[in-house]
Structure formats: C-alpha cells, structure tokens
Design a protein around this nucleic acid. Structure first.
Length: 147
DNA sequence: GCCAACGTTGGC
DNA sequence: GCCAACGTTGGC
C-alpha cells in the first residue's frame, strides 16, 4: 500500500489512536476492487513510501477491517468527494490499517529493482501506478530476508 | 520541473 | 466503440 510520506507516513500511522487509520481516498477501480473484494481483516501489507526522497518499503501494517464504503466520497467538504458515488450503491471502498512495525531499515525501490527474483513483482512493472497492489508469498519472504 | 505511462471523460 | 484531450501518478 502506497502513501506519500509528506502526506501520511508510517510514523504518522504509528501515532494514531490504536495505531489505526482508515485508508481513504483511493479513487482507482482496480485498487477499489482489491480493497473491497480481496483484502481481509488480519492480512498483512507493506507500507510503501512513494513520491519522496527515497521511495521504498518502510514497514509492515495489518489490515484491520474488511472493505467498507469510503465515507469521504459522500462528504462535499472532503477533497476525495465524488458526487457520482451514491450512498445506496457506493463506488469507493477502503480498509482500516494498523501499524505493525517498521522495517529495521527502509528497503529502497532501487534495491528492490536489483533483486532478479523480484523482477515480476507488480510494484516494479513498468508504468504501474496503483496505490494498492498484491505481493506474492515468495516476494514477501524475500523482501523480509533483505531487511 | 520533466515526462512516461497510465486512467477517465466525452464528442462523434 | 473509437480516440483525442486531459488529469494524475510517481520516478528521476
């Protein structure tokens, strides 16, 4: 799961009450489908810092809820407001996430790219811009070994 | 700041 | 259904 640390970093998540926050504002249908259908409470995820000095994986978070409608889509005062999202048929979903731990060090995008065994990882595919994407079990374990 | 690689929108 | 225009993402 990607976030710009200037906007919301893993340290910000750690400071939240119960170290938990709603991952709102995702406005991409592929990512929406994963939030709504694929992710389940108790799953683990990497917290990726994007669009910053050193992009890379900063830590591990736990999915703290199943997907549910993103309330910011219905809030005219939210920058994520979407007038086309009908409360009776919500267009956008989110999950709650909980801080688990930071990695002992940030594993940078550059370093991930050097790992031949990660060459098929979705994060590293050309042109990828999804803010939420799957990580395979082998990829997950390899990254933890790099820590 | 630049730009490639998308996704979305809307005219036709 | 096609596709140009536009907006966004995110690495560099």
């Amino acid at each position: 799961m990607k976030s710009e640390p200037g906007d919301f970093s893993i340290d910000d998540l750690k400071k939240r009450p119960r170290r938990t926050e709603a991952w709102d504002g995702v406005r991409n249908f592929q990512a929406r489908n994963m939030l709504r259908d694929a992710m389940r409470q108790g799953d683990l995820a990497f917290f990726y810092h994007s669009n910053c000095d050193e992009p890379g994986i900063a830590g591990i978070i736990e999915i703290a809820s199943n997907g549910y409608p993103d309330p910011t889509a219905f809030d005219p005062h939210s920058k994520h407001f979407d007038p086309d999202s009908d409360p009776a048929d919500p267009r956008w979903y989110l999950v709650d996430v909980r801080f688990k731990r930071k990695l002992r060090r940030l594993i940078s995008l550059t370093e991930l790219k050097k790992q031949k065994r990660l060459r098929n990882m979705q994060l590293l595919k050309r042109g990828n811009r999804l803010s939420v994407m799957p990580v395979g079990p082998a990829e997950w374990n390899l990254i933890l070994e790099m820590e």
